[in-house]
Structure formats: structure tokens, C-alpha cells
């Protein structure tokens, strides 16, 4: 079997038996994006080209819904089974995807224990009680996550109201730093390591104005790899949010 997107890779690396998985997408080998980068490094990286997939001789290719139609057709023409799984944007959806993938691999028991572990962590980490404040998530190019996004759910589970959602922003939108400051959030969530390789998109991490806000708001640094995919890694995000909120 081969998986073709970062988030499906992460699940496959957890669910598959050692000899079941013969390739994952090249993104999974990037330690900034992938929690299981070292495990992925042992497998051949796959790009979105049919040739690089077929050379691995998979029986099954798992890819995200919305993958290119030509890719799917070429794979089917070559006699490879194709399974399309939806893009999960919440922990609940991730559980469904895990169930589906586990069934396709014949590893239902592993899937069930993974989901049970997730539910247990969620129960332990969820904030009980009234919301403790507002939070805002800042990503590259002044992006933020509002209503319907995974980060929105994680903030809510951790006991925060999401400033971006309250400003009417959808699952992805943009917020100017000015609006962020004027909203006076209690917690600012960002990837503090994002600008280690400098880019204009991510240089806001060191912006003076944010540092000034730090006097009033708490700052949580959550590496992108813990929040980019819905799944078991999200609890690391919640753990860091809880730690920052203390």
C-alpha cells in the first residue's frame, strides 16, 4: 500500500503492519511537517507522479478526496486499487478516517485501540468549565483559522473562545496584526519555530507589536506539525495550550 498525502501518511504509519506500507508522500519525511518523519524516512518518498507510485508495485493507493482525476484514472488503468478518503477537519472526522483506513488494511483492532487512545487523551485534556478567555491562532502570511477549522475545535476543547471565529472568519482567513492586537486576546498561538528558515510569510513571529502584546497575553508555541492534520497528534497541541494557559 502507498499513501499520498501528509495526513493519511501519518495515520498509515500508525495503522499498517511493518510490511504493508511501501511508500508515503515526500512531505512526511520533513520533520517540520511530520511527527513521524524518522519512521517515514525509512520508506521511499512518493510524489504526485504516477510513475513514482507504480514503481513501488502497490496493491492499494490511498489518497485524499479531491486528488487529481487524471492521477486516479491512470492508477486504475494500471490495475491498482484506489481508495479515496476525506480530508478530516476535526478530531471526530479523523476517527472516521482511521476506521475506514484500518478496515481497508485489515487492521481493525489497531484502529480501534488508536481511537480509544485518542478518546482517552481527549477526555483527560479537555477543559471542564466555562471558557477561560479568547485565543487567536496566527499562521504564515497573516493567516488564521476560524469557524469550522481544526484549530477552532482544539481551542474550544482547551477552554478558549477563538477570536477569529468571533470576528466571523471561516476555516481559513486573514487577520491583520492590528486586528489581532485590538481584539486583545488572552492567548496567542503560533509556531515559534516557523521563521527559523526566514520568510516574509513567517517573520511576524518576531514582530515587535506581538512581543509588546506578550506583556498582556500568554503565548503558546505550537509547531505546525501538531496542528496541520486532524489526528492523534492534536493532543500535543492541546497539551501545549494547557501548559501556556496555566
Amino acid at each position: 500500500m502507498v499513501t499520498l498525502n501528509l495526513c493519511l501518511d501519518q495515520m498509515a504509519l500508525r495503522l499498517a503492519a511493518p510490511d504493508q506500507l511501501v511508500g508515503v508522500s515526500y512531505l512526511s519525511q520533513d520533520p517540520r511537517l511530520s511527527v513521524l518523519a524518522d519512521r517515514a524516512a525509512a520508506l521511499p518518498p512518493v510524489r504526485d507522479s504516477v510513475e513514482s507510485i507504480l514503481i513501488l508495485r502497490p496493491d492499494l493507493v490511498i489518497l485524499g478526496q479531491g486528488s487529481h482525476a487524471r492521477l486516479k484514472r491512470l492508477l486504475r488503468d494500471a490495475g491498482v486499487r484506489v481508495l479515496e478518503l476525506p480530508w478530516a477537519t476535526s478530531i471526530g472526522e479523523a476517527e472516521t478516517v482511521i476506521e475506514q483506513m484500518a478496515a481497508a488494511l485489515g487492521r481493525e483492532d489497531v484502529g480501534r485501540s488508536l481511537i480509544a487512545g485518542m478518546r482517552e487523551q481527549r477526555r483527560q485534556l479537555a477543559w471542564k468549565g466555562a471558557p477561560r478567555g479568547t485565543a487567536v491562532y496566527l499562521e504564515a502570511n497573516r493567516g488564521t483559522s476560524g469557524k469550522g477549522s481544526l484549530m477552532d475545535e482544539l481551542l474550544r476543547l482547551s477552554g478558549y473562545r477563538n477570536l477569529a471565529s468571533e470576528l466571523g472568519i471561516g476555516s481559513f482567513g486573514r487577520l491583520s496584526l492590528e486586528t489581532v492586537l485590538a481584539g486583545q486576546p488572552d492567548l496567542v498561538v503560533l509556531d515559534g519555530t516557523a521563521n527559523d528558515n526566514p520568510a516574509r510569510a513567517t517573520e511576524f513571529v518576531g514582530h515587535h507589536a506581538l512581543l509588546a502584546l506578550a506583556g498582556q497575553a500568554k503565548l503558546a508555541s505550537v509547531p505546525t506539525k501538531y496542528s496541520i492534520c486532524a489526528g492523534p497528534d492534536n493532543f500535543e497541541t492541546m497539551r501545549r495550550l494547557a501548559e501556556a494557559g496555566r
Binding site: S176, L177, E178, T179, L181, A182, L213, Q216
Partner: peptide, 22 residues
């Protein structure tokens, strides 16, 4: 600016918006 009149906040944040951003 998007935050309109930052001085209405009446605290350091308003001042930060003016001084550090505008």
C-alpha cells in the same frame, strides 16, 4: 486601519498599535 481608533482601548495595546504598526 482595521482597528480604527486604537486609542479608544485606552491601554498599552492601543499605544502599541499606533507606535509599532501604524
Amino acid at each position: 486601519g482595521p482597528a480604527w481608533w486604537p486609542w479608544r482601548l485606552g491601554n498599552e495595546v492601543g499605544w502599541t498599535i499606533v507606535w509599532e504598526l501604524r
